[in-house]
Write a protein that binds this DNA or RNA. Structure first.
Lengths: 160, 160
DNA sequence: AGTATAGTCGACTGAAATGTTCAAGTATTG
DNA sequence: CAATACTTGAACATTTCAGTCGACTATACT
């Protein structure tokens, strides 16, 4: 799971789309103007999102894009995976020759961290992002952080 | 907070260093061979890590690198921030002209997610990554995942 | 003192990813 | 038919990635 500006653009555009789709299909031109992302770049991103069945297109006048599923069923991880297609090489391809014992260990440690990241992003949906007034969002973040710290402490305690 | 292969290389190298530093300074040549990362690329990465006071160097024969602080005080976020230096432009620089209400809103939503990501990575230390046998690491991951799901549900419930 | 070791620095490179722009389509509405 | 809007593809400048090279400095050992 990579995390680049490309993924950010996609997530930003999807938030805009999710917020406005009640008024029918949303045009890329509109998203482009509101979010200051080049129209052609959006076309590329939404081409990928469409091929991954995250959005659906409506052609012709009055057309645009709409979500292919409910907001609860679209996670941030889905969006990023769609535009960053080649999730590929974990430097070791998964089953490649993990030569010595040591190599395998660091490899496992890394993929484990990677997995946690993915699970976290998969747990945040468009619905979560859109349906949160500012104050509440901040409060929720803090409480989640507390839980994370708690989990980490458990982790350390277990391995000590 | 970006997450690229560059950061992975740095984290992998740091894990290798953390595991071996009890035997004195660790040479980049050794890390290069064990982790299959080009020596010159490691020099660039460790130059940044040194300038951020995450590692310290020992010159001359028998020299190499060692951690500048304890493993508990080095988080994954620290490592990634050191090598990915320009954490810069959130597309909006922070205080830039968030033109209309809408623009500000999606911007807030994104930075909030970004913040959560950072807090998560900051909560995982080198110590956590190194001192965990496989089986326990997996168990810990699962239990952490449960906590995350729980936290998210609370989140949704709060905003609904 | 001299030599081997090992980090330090800077410049430079080819390949890939980013992000943008231009151009030519096709499907749909009115 | 004309306007709208998605679709596709190519070309492009810029930046980042990852590696290479060469010259240099500091230290340990003989």
């Amino acid at each position: 799971m990579r995390l680049t500006t490309k993924g950010r653009f996609a997530v930003t555009a999807m938030i805009d789309l999710a917020q406005r789709q009640t008024g029918g299909p949303v045009t890329l031109a509109g998203i482009s103007e509101r979010q200051k992302i080049s129209l052609s770049y959006l076309e590329q991103l939404f081409g990928k999102l469409r091929r991954h069945c995250i959005v659906a297109s409506v052609r012709g006048p009055g057309g645009g894009y709409r979500l292919a599923r409910g907001m609860q069923e679209v996670s941030v991880a889905d969006i990023i995976a769609a535009v960053d297609e080649p999730l590929d090489a974990t430097n070791c391809g998964g089953r490649e020759n993990c030569q010595d014992e040591q190599r395998c260990m660091t490899h496992d440690l890394w993929t484990n961290l990677n997995k946690r990241m993915h699970e976290y992003l998969a747990s945040v949906t468009l619905h979560d992002l859109v349906n949160q007034p500012k104050a509440k969002a901040v409060a929720a973040t803090i409480s989640m952080d507390d839980r994370l710290r708690g989990a980490r402490r458990d982790n350390v305690a277990m391995s000590a």
